[in-house]
């Protein structure tokens, strides 16, 4: 996987300021941008509230946050901007919510994407988590609802999970404010580049698909050197995703290359 040079810019923010502005995020006085992704009913909004405090709660209409909610917090020496993305089961199905979430992570390039999952339903929640890890390699897994997992007598090997996914994993119970300090610490580590993620990438079972992907990835890497998620982009091209096709056609993708490798 793509290991970042520990060069001059290891601690630089990675987010794409121009694109974030286009996506409507006010970037004044924020050092880092955090995106919050997750399935519906995983307590994503509770995590958001726990991180930002009561003043910037999300507009929580039943079940989902359609208007993207924003908030901010200060931790250590840094100002963080946090964006609550709509809760989705997937990023592949081109419904309006999924498009919002997907575009934000891809084009906004948040410094950290916090993936909130329901610890008692890990397998189903990992579907979205693995898709997010295909797009970005700066992520933290927030293993929320640990209280429910305990109630269901489930034990989760957090360290092994972190190793499997290649990103920090923090168990929390946001309703009880449990684990929030650890989550903040993990966010800081990934944001400042102290922790370098080596995210899990999905293995395809279909040989045809693998061959096609390899062929396209090779092409993409020539056209856009340093693109960290070329495999994902190739997949989207094969699925005919209009927004990604456009990004390739206009060369917009070149703007998303890691700054220290372009």
């Amino acid at each position: 996987m793509n290991i970042k040079d520990s060069g001059a810019c290891a601690t630089c923010p990675a987010h794409n300021v121009a694109n974030l502005k286009k996506l409507g995020v006010n970037m004044e006085s924020a050092d880092f941008v955090i995106a919050l992704a997750g399935n519906p009913n995983t307590g994503k909004s509770t995590v958001f509230n726990a991180l930002t405090g009561l003043r910037q709660h999300t507009g929580n209409w039943p079940g989902k946050t359609v208007i993207r909610a924003e908030g901010g917090f200060v931790y250590g020496d840094h100002h963080y901007k946090i964006v609550d993305l709509p809760g989705t089961y997937s990023l592949l199905s081109t419904s309006a919510d999924e498009e919002i979430a997907r575009n934000f992570i891809l084009f906004g390039k948040p410094d950290v994407t916090v993936i909130v999952v329901d610890a008692s339903r890990l397998e189903r929640n990992l579907n979205l988590a693995l898709q997010v890890l295909e797009i970005t390699d700066r992520a933290v897994l927030c293993l929320n609802l640990m209280d429910e997992a305990r109630r269901n007598r489930l034990d989760i090997d957090v360290r092994l999970l972190a190793k499997e996914l290649g990103i920090p994993v923090v168990p929390t119970a946001a309703r009880q404010n449990e684990g929030i300090p650890d989550l903040l610490a993990a966010i800081r580590q990934v944001a400042t580049g102290e922790f370098v993620c080596r995210p899990h990438r999905i293995e395809s079972t279909s040989k045809n698909l693998r061959l096609a992907l390899d062929q396209l990835v090779a092409r993409l890497e020539v056209a856009f050197p340093g693109l960290t998620n070329s495999r994902w982009v190739a997949l989207r091209l094969l699925e005919g995703d209009a927004r990604i096709v456009e990004a390739v056609q206009t060369g917009e993708l070149a703007g998303l290359v890691e700054p220290d490798q372009a």
Partner: peptide
Amino acid sequence: QQRRRIMDLG
């Protein structure tokens, strides 16, 4: 959309 939704649900 129906198919994608059902598959996304697992």
